[in-house]
């Protein structure tokens, strides 16, 4: 019976109390489905991803979609103004969202966004980093860990090479990026806890 949806993958955090749980869920699902499809399309364009077994493709996407979305949608978090843009384009302040029930996850999202934006990555670097986020051999349920690991290593090498080429005097950027991976895991875990608390099925 949650009354507010503080995830920016909604058009608004406010829920019409007249609506049934089912229709609220349907609307939420329709809101985030295009973003998930975009993540799948992105994954399909990663060289080597389609060569993995379908089971492992699904497992990686199930486990990593949230983390990919966090990286892709850092622009929704205005660090300076401390505001979050929802799908409708309307911005809500952190204070407003806190009063609606947003917890530590929101602050952690801002911290992550601030640190990632500070690295000033190009679109190509961001894209390759996102591929590294998705192709992680330590996700649960993988049937062919070696294949995923081999692809992961290829992608990490490519990212390192790109960062070295673009920032010859700032190789620390590569290390900082790799250190973002556990941060994303932590955000993913916090998000999962929120989802478990949120009974999505009416």
């Amino acid at each position: 019976n949650r009354m507010h949806l503080v995830c920016p993958m909604n058009t608004s955090p406010y829920v019409d109390p007249q609506k049934s749980g089912h229709s609220i869920w349907e609307e939420f699902s329709m809101s985030f489905t295009p973003a998930v499809r975009e993540v799948v399309e992105f994954a399909k364009r990663i060289p080597g991803f389609k060569d993995l077994s379908q089971h492992d493709q699904v497992s990686l996407l199930k486990a990593g979609t949230f983390e990919v979305l966090v990286v892709r949608f850092t622009s929704l978090f205005d660090v300076k103004e401390r505001k979050v843009t929802f799908l409708s384009g309307r911005k809500y302040s952190v204070d407003a969202l806190r009063s609606l029930g947003a917890g530590d996850l929101l602050n952690s999202m801002f911290d992550f966004t601030e640190k990632l934006q500070a690295l000033n990555l190009s679109e190509e670097e961001m894209s390759l980093f996102t591929a590294v986020v998705l192709v992680s051999a330590d996700r649960s349920g993988l049937e062919n860990v070696n294949s995923v690991e081999a692809l992961q290593e290829t992608l990490i090498r490519a990212l390192r090479s790109l960062i070295t080429k673009n920032h010859p005097n700032e190789i620390a950027i590569f290390t900082k990026l790799l250190l973002k991976l556990p941060d994303l895991r932590s955000l993913n875990n916090m998000h999962s806890e929120q989802l478990l608390a949120f009974k999505v099925h009416p």
Binding site: S29, T33, V40, Q54, T65, L196, V200
Partner: peptide, 27 residues
């Protein structure tokens, strides 16, 4: 234990998108 990704229906969306929406085409 409840799987958040399954709760969201993520797996279904992912499978359909991976298959190139074959199910939708058949419909």
């Amino acid at each position: 234990f409840s799987d958040p990704a399954s709760n969201l229906g993520l797996e279904d969306i992912i499978r359909k998108a991976l298959m190139g929406n074959m199910e939708e085409k058949q419909e």
